[in-house]
Design a protein around this nucleic acid. Structure first.
Lengths: 235, 235
DNA sequence: CCGTGGCATGTAGCATGCTACATGTCAAGA
DNA sequence: TCTTGACATGTAGCATGCTACATGCCACGG
């Protein structure tokens, strides 16, 4: 018999979650210097788990250490975002194509259910839930593609975008718009049309990516145009 | 002026390197239980950097912790390897295609130089150096594709294969054979023929992947045929 | 007014102390 | 023989102590 629950809730894990949320909610501001001591004290734990969590985030590129100085939240630069979405294109488009060529019925049901939930969250303006179902939908497609590593990989990438999505929520598209972009993907998969599924996914990811890059460029006041950057990275 | 050298050699880094090498050289055997205490003692450092290094390896999937018991080196299962090469196909083939469409001259020079070094290492049966130049060649192509994240990602994946490559060195192909597989890739890039470059890269990665999967299947005495597994994962 | 050096401050990184717990052992009881 | 459970053993995970060092501040000398 397998253990009931391998306590996946080590203190370090909890701290990591807290830190992510703190970044999302704006409590931890990118660029500013913080100390692990301080964080440990604030969270009421010792420095070890805090350091462990920070190291993990550092490896994901969300945090940078400065020796004997502290750490700071790294706000992804426009190029980072472009690269990130480039990877998503390279991985998620083939996944959508492949899944469409098989289209297991229960997967289609699952996808439709997520769509419904997304729509509902959109009307209620519950951004958190919306993002979760968005993630679920993409996750379901990737899982069905049969590569576990792929799933966790994309999960990490999406996590990054969620971080920055919080600092400046994207207001140029409503949640309903975003939701609508997923419909053709699911439809194509249900209809077993790989080409359509691929292009729909590419469209969706590209739209999102271009928007976030443009947004990041606007914020940082970077010289290079967002479209130029996108085209250079994604090509 | 930039700092001379941000000491990238934290103790934890060194320990991580030591551990990788220990696995490669067979000193640390997969599946066996070890203790961090022991390792710290052996390496002559305290437990903190050892733990830190182990956590990093654990996140990469090379190591598994057992609470209050110890840790063990995880030997990637056939499916892991298949998934890993699936990802490499998804990422490296487009990279090769793209680079071929541009073919910066200095890149071609670099690639040819790496080929020469690989060949030399092959004749001298210097497997370590061979692997390094192999990695350099792939890395150069990926770097030229302009996505830094992509480079580090593939680096990690390749690192994994090197781990298991050591436990049972692949004897069905000579180093010269492997080297020869790279030639068409470089030629196609130099000739600015994206299609050829893509197929050559796909061929190379597929060959290597199928072999390693077959090898892993043979070792573990798994039931499912290696080819079936490959086809299921990669499709 | 500006460069220089001592000093106080605060931190990352490493070492070490401490606790709860997962397992192996073995003797007592059925 | 099989089960039970007290106990010893050893570890992960967390807490805390310790050190070198990067920076800011300020007084002093040019």
């Amino acid at each position: 018999m397998k253990p009931l629950s391998t306590p996946n809730t080590s203190l370090a894990d909890q701290v990591a979650s807290s830190l992510r949320q703190a970044v999302r909610s704006g409590v931890l501001q990118p660029g500013r210097l913080y100390s692990a001591y301080q964080m440990a004290d604030t969270l009421g734990v010792s420095r070890s788990p805090v350091r462990e969590a920070l190291l993990r985030l550092a490896e994901a590129g969300m945090v940078e250490f400065e020796r004997n100085r502290g750490f700071r939240i790294v706000l992804p630069k426009p190029r980072d975002i472009a690269e990130l979405f480039h990877l998503r294109l390279l991985l998620e488009v083939p996944a959508a194509r492949r899944v469409a060529s098989e289209a297991p019925p229960d997967l289609v049901d699952e996808l439709r259910a997520q769509l419904v939930d997304m729509e509902r969250a959109a009307t209620e303006h519950d951004e958190i839930r919306f993002m979760r179902h968005d993630q679920n939908l993409h996750g379901a497609i990737l899982s069905a593609a049969g590569n576990r590593r792929l799933v966790s990989l994309i999960d990490n990438l999406r996590d990054m975008t969620r971080l920055l999505g919080a600092s400046t929520v994207d207001r140029s598209r409503t949640l309903h718009d975003v939701c609508a972009e997923h419909v053709p993907i699911v439809d194509a998969i249900a209809a077993r049309e790989p080409d359509k599924a691929g292009t729909a996914m590419a469209q969706h990811v590209t739209n999102t990516g271009r928007l976030l890059v443009a947004q990041a460029v606007a914020e940082t006041g970077d010289q290079t145009g967002a479209d130029a950057l996108w085209d250079e990275v994604v090509r």
